[in-house]
Amino acid sequence: MKRREFIEKTAASTALLSLGLSLSSFESNDIKHLTILHTNDVHSHIDPFPADDPRNPNKGGVSRRATLIEAIRKENPNVLLLDAGDIFQGTPYFNYYGGELEFKLMSMMKYDASTIGNHDFDNGLDGLYAQLPHATFDFINSNYDFKNTVMDGHIKPYKIFNKNGIKVGVFGVGIELQGLVDKKLYLETVYNNPVEVAQDMTKLLKQEQKCDLVICLSHLGYKYKDEPTKISDLTFAAQTQDIDLIIGGHTHTFLDKPTVVKNKAGKDVLVNQVGCYGINLGRIDFYFDKDKAHTNQSATIVV
């Protein structure tokens, strides 16, 4: 009798032990790796700067960027390729072709999404609208209301990407157009407060849709040292929550590494921007697992 009991107990605990082991090994092997690649303010810089350019000799170039992106995709196919706006304006490619080549090349590189910068209005709403058929990627902006314009229905307020099981919510915020862009170019486009819009977006993406990662594509600008009250990526990051990464633009800011900002809830947000003209490609790697022990831990940030 005692022997039987012993055998039963042993069998049960062995089963449980092996069950536990197989589960924990299943969890620790289930590490997901997502690579975010990003550009901003490329401003129609399709060709590299010439070798004799006094400021950026031999830097940039779409064809080289495509090579880098392809190499990274080979290393980790789980890539999200994003742009933070001001695709247009800066070289004769834009003046001659109105953005057609920019959109076609971004489509060839398989960009997933872009937000809209102030210079993307440079040929007016009609000019932007006319080039949309050349883009296979989505335009995302949450704080411009295009309801009474030709762009109505062509700009998504957000998009959820499922990347190998990782749910990534992306929304976008654009800069105040009044005083920066000629009214005859943006017409009836309405600018809404980015912080208020972000509250709705993060509630939807993080709390309701349970995204594993929330990214904001911003064309607000990194920081305004002479106008500290003006909304910028740094002040925006501090006034919002449930955003993991802000990919910025507009101020052509070259950062050595992404900036870590404490958000409204005291958690870390990454703010990044990679200068301008396609001189750099930003790369942020996110690692996820399902280990319960990590549920309430904040991520280790290596920058």
Partner: peptide, 29 residues
Amino acid sequence: KNYNLTKIEGKQVPVTEKTGETTEIENFI
């Protein structure tokens, strides 16, 4: 169960002449 974000690595990749060109893109431009 959602995924837990455990590690983030950020870096900048410079686009220079050391990077080779993509023929398909080059021919298109």
